[in-house]
């Protein structure tokens, strides 16, 4: 079964208070690797069989209309085996 994955992230210029909160929590726990953190959303969509081009086009449309808000967010659609 293939999975269509939609990753939604706030646009780089939009303030991400949740990501900032994670970034400031990490060093408190001894993790010193992070220069910055951005938090987003991931949608996993199961389809029967291999996703068709038409299905992917529909997912793109749904991502634009519902899954993301294009005013503040970008999205990427990909297929995960």
């Amino acid at each position: 079964m293939a999975k269509i994955v939609v990753d939604v992230m706030l646009k780089p210029e939009i303030l991400d208070p949740q990501g900032n909160a994670v970034a400031s929590a990490l060093p408190r726990l001894g993790f010193s690797f992070a220069k910055s953190v951005r938090q987003g959303k991931r949608f996993e969509i199961e389809v029967e069989g291999e996703p068709t081009a038409a299905q992917l086009a529909e997912v793109e449309k749904a991502a634009e209309v519902l899954l993301s808000n294009p005013v503040i967010e970008n999205f990427v659609v990909r297929v995960e085996k």
């Binding site: 939009i14 303030l15 208070p17 949740q18 808000n69 005013v71």
Partner: peptide
């Protein structure tokens, strides 16, 4: 109203969470 595009922009998480 913003999500409906009747108004521009968006409302996001308060800056101090």
């Amino acid at each position: 109203l913003c999500e409906s595009h009747l108004l521009p922009g968006a409302l996001t998480r308060n800056s101090d969470l």
